[in-house]
């Protein structure tokens, strides 16, 4: 039986700018040369929110690549998504007291395939030739500005690399090499490409396995996009390379751990509900810290750095936190 195509709400291309506009439920999305516009209705009033098209596309890119990730993806202080694991909530103003207190916030839940197809189609349409929302600003420039000018589907269709156990094992995700078009990144000229010395006894070549994780990371061609590189049951090592600003503010629905493998990232921490500033966490090589389950965070990396995001992928965790069965941080331990 042929798969049923998902119908999304999309306009014809604008005669003026060449971009299509999109609708999902009570939300509509439009862009022009510089900006993305999100509109909704609350208390009988039409409301709109304006973002730089560059910032909006970088955020949509992560939402699509991460499959809406864990918890909340705040595009900024107004618009975002919440992962409901099978469904996705879009919200505007819900976590912004100025909107919320006036009853001007709006939220709506969608089946994940519809939300994903809407965002994926929007991303393909609004991304111009030569612009890569996964890349750092230094790498991709200003191709996002202006009327529609071609596309860059090769860039926006890149999928998150996820291993089952560890890259390089038989039947698992491949290692990154020159041969599979994953050259070393310009930012890591000093990262040694060497591999560990592995000496398996006969019959154990498939089980005695190691690789250069830092070398693997030095071949990443994207920013702020964790891969999954080793798995212990639901414990997921999700290393990533970071440069400039995390394009979203990630709201946690569970404890998330960061291990700074190289260089430095500054994290701005805000209250998850209100967005009020709580702390700034400055992490340097070798540092380990929690992002608690009751915050949202945004990272700033002045040079391309290596970050290990460590996740507990247990799908039961959000409900356990909501029932108060788990602490939001470890402060009760000491």
């Amino acid at each position: 039986m042929a798969a049923t195509a998902i119908e999304i709400g999309a306009s014809p291309a604008s005669n003026e700018t060449g971009y299509r506009s999109f609708e999902i439920g009570g939300f509509s999305f439009a862009r022009d040369e510089y900006f993305a516009y999100i509109t909704w209705t609350a208390k009988g009033q039409k409301l709109s929110h304006t973002m730089s098209a560059d910032a909006f596309l970088r955020a949509v890119m992560r939402a699509v690549a991460w499959g809406f990730f864990y918890g909340w993806i705040n595009f900024d202080a107004v618009f975002g998504t919440q992962q409901l694991y099978g469904r996705v909530k879009f919200f505007a103003g819900r976590y912004n007291p100025s909107y919320r207190d006036q009853g001007l916030d709006y939220e709506e839940i969608f089946e994940t395939p519809l939300a994903m197809e809407t965002f994926r189609t929007l991303l393909r349409d609004w991304t111009n030739d030569g612009y890569d929302p996964f890349a750092s600003p230094d790498e991709t420039g200003t191709g996002w500005i202006g009327k529609k000018n071609g596309d860059n589907n090769e860039a926006v269709d890149r999928e998150r690399e996820v291993c089952r156990r560890m890259p390089g094992l038989p039947g698992d995700a491949p290692l990154r090499t020159d041969d599979n078009r994953r050259p070393g990144h310009r930012a890591f000229p000093a990262a040694p490409p060497d591999q560990p010395e592995v000496y398996p006894e006969p019959g154990f070549a498939d089980e005695v396995h190691a690789h250069n994780l830092f070398g693997y990371l030095s071949r990443s061609d994207v920013t702020w996009n964790p891969s999954v590189s080793s798995v212990v049951k639901q414990s997921l090592f999700c290393p990533t390379t970071e440069e400039y600003i995390l394009p979203i503010k990630h709201g946690n629905d569970r404890m998330e751990w960061f291990v700074q493998l190289s260089d430095q990232i500054d994290w701005e921490i805000e209250d998850k509900e209100t967005g009020r500033p709580r702390a700034k966490v400055i992490m340097k090589a070798g540092d380990v810290a929690i992002m608690p389950a009751d915050i949202r965070h945004q990272g700033f990396s002045k040079k391309r750095s290596m970050l290990l995001v460590w996740e507990n992928g247990n799908p039961e965790l959000p409900a356990m936190y909501e029932r108060g069965e788990l602490p939001v941080n470890l402060s009760g331990e000491f």
Partner: peptide
């Protein structure tokens, strides 16, 4: 089974 020699960054 074997042995492995590794250094910084190796997993």
């Amino acid at each position: 089974m074997g042995r492995i020699r590794m250094w910084r960054g190796h997993q």
